[in-house]
Design a protein around this nucleic acid. Structure first.
Lengths: 237, 237
DNA sequence: GTAAAAATAGCACGACCGTTCGATTTATCA
DNA sequence: TGATAAATCGAACGGTCGTGCTATTTTTAC
């Protein structure tokens, strides 16, 4: 705490020079590990395979983390950071209430539609660590809970703004939205159903309609095209 | 095809005498394997661990299947059979339309609420085999697709019976119901949220309400207790 | 340039994995 | 009961895994 190493002085060019060679390769390793983990899951991540990708020796990779568990945790942290950068922060630029909530869902969907090909460690990790207590599971669950809490807060704001019914149960609505992402992943990635993306969008409108204060007459024929500009996700960013 | 072994003649007591000693222990092995696979997933299933549970030698267990893959397929088939017996067939006793659809969902929920403690190989298997083509993946996907098709058929019957809107997209509604089960599993089993069961029930009513022909005025305050007898799942069987 | 420090490589260990094969026990049936 | 077939065992093989050690190379700091 008090023994800041004085050797940390800057050299010449920039203020911090944050990346000693070690940190730099460590970041590259984590990046490669993230790529592997999204496909095979955190549990399938092996140091040998990672070393091969990095063209390094196993021990060279290993030395950066000290244990496989620490490597997995680093991957979870990196994934969390990227998720926030891609999904959470851009949505904060939208007006509080329904616009922001929609933006959060749209960004989430956009990321998920990419992950249909690659995979999502929040989902594979949940399966692989649901019976395995420990720091990896804690990191995963903490990260997911952070995001779900943000969703709930956005919903509560939409209630406060008068966009959603006053009695709206934010946790209930967040549960239903979360469910859509999980089903999209399952049916598109595992079963290969091509229409899943549109299904999730349609369902989101249904959920919002159920909780919304806007006039939502019961449609005679519930059509997917009711209030959906089908290009919304693609055009949002 | 034409060389039915004539040694299959019956002996004395009953018609078939289906269980030579081998088939008997094989069934016991599959049963134990199913117990292990639900917890650790099909991919975590190891012959060594299975042999220990069975108090047999590794090679003794192995000989019944010839390969690990065949063992996994046997487990999937057994799981499929039990799922049908617990969820599908009992619901067939209900009247076509909404009653049967509700029974299917209720049975599904009942099973899922048990699997919150044990696990579900349709979910863990999806994660573990989504990038691994082969007979195990095919068995899994085929089994899931069979069930989802049954759900869609039940929905279409409910439309035909006039219980749901004529324009109802059965695949859409099945997608949304499937999503609830996945979210229940995720939030209850992984995150440990205690209210997830009630959340899924509430959401199901919301979905049915959106597609139903029954009078469903937009509720001022969408209350979970609206049309829900909270003991429905428990009392159905 | 040189000495200290950090990063990386090489190698080996023990553990577990699925699988093979020959020996041995157990069940089956005339 | 005795012959035959089925079931099970025991030991071993090649492989991958995470990890711990000791060299060696590369980077850093003066």
């Amino acid at each position: 705490m008090s023994s800041q190493p004085p050797a940390k002085r800057l050299r010449s060019d920039s203020a911090a020079r944050p990346l000693q060679k070690g940190q730099q390769t460590k970041a590259a390793i984590v990046d490669a590990a993230l790529g592997l983990a999204t496909q095979i899951g955190l549990e399938g991540l092996s140091i040998g395979a990672l070393a091969e990708v990095m063209q390094m020796s196993k021990s060279g990779v290993f030395a950066h983390f000290g244990s496989r568990e620490e490597l997995q945790i680093s991957v979870v942290r990196e994934y969390h950071a990227r998720f926030e950068d891609e999904v959470f922060y851009p949505a904060m630029a939208f007006a509080r209430g329904l616009p922001r909530l929609r933006a959060m869902f749209d960004n989430w969907m956009k990321r998920t539609s990419v992950e249909i090909d690659s995979g999502c460690i929040y989902i594979s990790g949940a399966v692989q660590f649901e019976d395995r207590p420990g720091p990896v599971r804690d990191a995963l669950a903490g990260s997911v809970n952070t995001w779900l809490s943000a969703m709930r807060r956005a919903i509560e704001m939409a209630v406060a703004e008068g966009h959603l019914h006053p009695g709206t149960d934010a946790a209930q609505m967040a549960f239903e939205i979360h469910a859509l992402i999980l089903a999209l992943h399952y049916e598109a990635r595992f079963l290969g159903s091509p229409d899943s993306l549109q299904r999730a969008l349609t369902a989101f409108d249904g959920i919002v309609g159920r909780f919304s204060t806007a006039a939502t007459p019961v449609p005679e024929t519930p059509s997917p095209a009711r209030s959906r500009k089908t290009t919304r996700v693609a055009t949002q960013g």
